[in-house]
Simulated scan of single mutants.
Amino acid sequence: MAADLDPVADELYALPRDEFTAARNAAAKRARQNGDKTLAEQIQALRRPSTAAWLANLLSREHPDEVRALVVDLGDGLRAAQDQLEGEALRRLSQQRHEVVHGLVEQARALARSTGNPPSDAVTRELENTFTAAVNSSTAAEAVAGGRLTSALDPAEAGGLLGTTTTPPPAKQHGDDGPKREERLRRDLEQARSTAADADAARDKAERELTDAESAADDAAATLRELRSHIEAVEQAEHDTRTRARSAEREVDAADRAAREAQRRVLDLERRLDQH
Rank of each mutant, 00 (worst) to 15 (best):
A3S: 12
P7T: 05
A9F: 01
A9M: 03
D10K: 05
L12M: 03
L12A: 02
A14C: 05
R17A: 00
T21L: 10
N25T: 04
A27H: 02
N34S: 12
G35D: 12
D36T: 10
A45I: 03
R48Y: 03
R48G: 00
A53W: 04
E62Y: 10
R68F: 08
L70Y: 02
G75P: 05
R79L: 03
A81C: 14
Q84D: 11
E88C: 08
R92D: 11
Q95N: 12
V100H: 06
G103W: 00
E106C: 09
R109I: 04
A110M: 10
S114I: 11
G116C: 09
A122R: 12
N129M: 05
N129D: 06
T132E: 03
V135W: 01
A140H: 01
A141T: 00
A141D: 03
A143K: 01
A143R: 01
V144M: 06
T150Y: 05
D154Y: 03
G159V: 08
G159N: 15
G163M: 04
T164C: 09
T164P: 06
T165H: 14
T167D: 14
H174P: 06
G175I: 09
D176P: 08
D176G: 04
R187K: 15
R187V: 11
E190W: 09
R193Y: 10
S194H: 14
T195P: 05
A199L: 09
R203I: 01
K205S: 06
R208Y: 00
R208C: 00
E209L: 06
D212Y: 03
A213R: 10
E214D: 11
S215F: 07
A217C: 09
D219L: 12
T223M: 15
T223H: 14
L224R: 15
R225D: 15
E226F: 13
R228H: 14
S229Q: 15
E238N: 11
D240L: 10
R242V: 13
R244C: 07
E249C: 09
R250K: 15
R250N: 12
A254R: 13
A255F: 08
R257T: 11
A258Y: 10
A259E: 14
A262G: 13
L269I: 07
R272W: 10
L273I: 15
